[in-house]
């Protein structure tokens, strides 16, 4: 069997994805864990490209790497001293093991179709679906964004006294 370009690219991206994710939850220094989280996000955007979701991959890079990671870096600058504690002991990994067993039992009974539907979704079609079928959730998301930003400002504001 000849390995296609897609498969090689998938394994390449999955390696970086798993290493970045594992380092993001285990590294002691919070800044280094943030950088490996950025590696994780970039390779996940590559996986989205493999799934032919180019728009989502682009938005993933814009919002996550450009927005959220930068926001966390700013917060790290504002907090003067972040203690660099490691993780808690091995006992705290038991819930994750429970979830692993749950998912393995789901996989044993799952029936999945092997057909890959290649349908291109452009910005235009996506925005048309967004403004016709998902009109109400879109407006709800707008309200939630405004409320959460006002909340974030009200919580982090310095009180004069």
């Amino acid at each position: 069997m000849v390995l296609g370009f897609n498969v090689l690219f998938f394994y390449f991206l999955a390696f970086f994805l798993l290493v970045g994710g594992a380092l993001a939850v285990t590294l002691k220094s919070i800044f280094q864990s943030l950088l490996s989280f950025a590696v994780f996000l970039l390779s996940l955007a590559g996986i989205f490209l493999l799934l032919q979701a180019e728009v989502i991959g682009l938005i993933q890079i814009l919002v996550y790497v450009g927005g959220i990671v930068a926001l966390i870096i700013f917060t790290l600058m504002l907090i003067p001293r972040v203690e660099e504690g490691g993780n808690r002991g091995w006992l705290y990994s038991l819930p994750a093991l429970a979830f692993l067993i749950l998912f393995l039992s789901i996989f044993k009974s799952a029936k999945l179709t092997p057909i890959f539907r290649s349908e291109t979704v452009s910005f235009f079609t996506l925005s048309r679906v967004l403004l016709s079928d998902f009109m109400f959730p879109l407006e709800l998301i707008g309200v939630i964004i405004v409320a959460s930003f006002i909340t974030a400002y009200a919580i982090s504001r310095r009180e004069k006294s």
Partner: peptide, 24 residues
């Protein structure tokens, strides 16, 4: 990825680490 996130949420000591795990 989901299991890594669950482990991070429970085992991380700093709040920002917990947030990163929730993003995972």
């Amino acid at each position: 990825i989901f299991i890594l996130g669950i482990y991070g949420i429970i085992a991380r000591r700093t709040l920002i680490g917990v947030l990163i795990s929730a993003e995972l």
